[in-house]
Design a protein around this nucleic acid. Structure first.
Ligand SMILES: [Zn+2]
Ligand SMILES: [Zn+2]
Ligand SMILES: [Zn+2]
Ligand SMILES: [Zn+2]
Lengths: 162, 162
DNA sequence: ATCCACCCTGGAGTGCACTCCAGAGTCAAG
DNA sequence: CTTGACTCTGGAGTGCACTCCAGGGTGGAT
């Protein structure tokens, strides 16, 4: 009972992140260091929970932690013009736009192929190989897209203490 | 002049990959070991170039090298039913579909915000932060998407020998 | 007093897909 | 016969975003 504020585990629970991840964010300067209790425990304000949720969302939209750091820095500094963030956003918009289009083409072809397979009961992998081969005839210098979610950790099973 | 076939550098040039990458693919069993000349040089057939292009494309569509390996294995085995590849494709279709929808929403919001910024000459980062915050209210357990292309290496500057 | 779930630290390890390095051999052209 | 661009190997290193570990301290409940 030494200064109010959320413990790191409470913050973890509220955000769906793990405590080590939150410490990691602090260690790379993404999150500013939390005030400590007399015994060294981090004590967080509710606003940190908001900030972490923001980070999670920005990340799910394709921003790297470094970029999020830039955005957060500007955001904390107030309403300054921040043309850098503007640029960053424009580049993302561009990338996102291209990715959507490539994915949509792929989706349509893959869906069509799967439908064919669902019809006749004897699928071969020829079709798949062909649609992969014919996808994106255009210079194929497309950036990769990580569709493989790192396993979302099961919500922390922390016994409610208090 | 010891057995015809492309040298690894030739293959690299034709595919846009680097020689180490091609060796790496062989080392993980993605590419089957190429026949060697008397002095140990790998000698590739033209079909390998096709295979590598296939790999590149599949990769750009979000398949991991491991998944590509599975597909290739089945593909080489002929036209067997391969329900595993079918499953794999269905899962990808699902993931791709979700990703497209999230990205499209984000794109629309981001584009709108940037348009506003283009109008009035004094952008602040409030808007961006808000659209990131409001994006995807739905449980945000969305997998990440790597929009950040690893730098596409400049085409190898290999002096045409031969 | 004893639990036991939490908290702390620094540092090492993970997974993917490369990328680089040192040290040695090969080969066609000049 | 030298040069120089290529080839080979094994192993180490990179970047991102964590994730785990050992070893130790804290604090509310019984
Ligand atoms: Zn970015
Ligand atoms: Zn196939
Ligand atoms: Zn996959
Ligand atoms: Zn802002």
């Amino acid at each position: 009972m030494d200064m109010a504020g959320l413990l790191i585990g409470d913050v973890a629970e509220r955000t769906g992140l793990t405590a080590p991840t939150i410490r990691y964010y602090e260690s790379i300067g993404l999150l500013k260091a939390a005030p400590r209790s007399a015994t060294g425990y981090r004590r967080y304000a509710d606003t940190t929970v908001e900030e972490l949720r923001f980070i999670k969302k920005a990340q799910s939209l394709g921003f790297s932690l470094e970029e999020i750091g830039e955005i957060l820095k500007l955001s904390r500094a107030g309403d300054t013009p921040c043309s850098h963030v503007l640029d960053l956003s424009r580049r993302h918009l561009q990338a996102v736009q291209e990715r959507i289009q490539q994915l949509a083409r792929f989706r349509d072809q893959l869906a069509a192929e799967l439908a064919k397979w669902d019809g006749k009961k004897e699928p071969t992998c020829r079709g798949l190989c062909q649609i992969i081969s014919s996808a994106e005839e255009r210079e194929a210098d497309a950036p990769s897209l990580d569709l493989h979610a790192r396993d979302l950790r099961a919500g922390s099973r922390r016994k409610a203490r208090r």
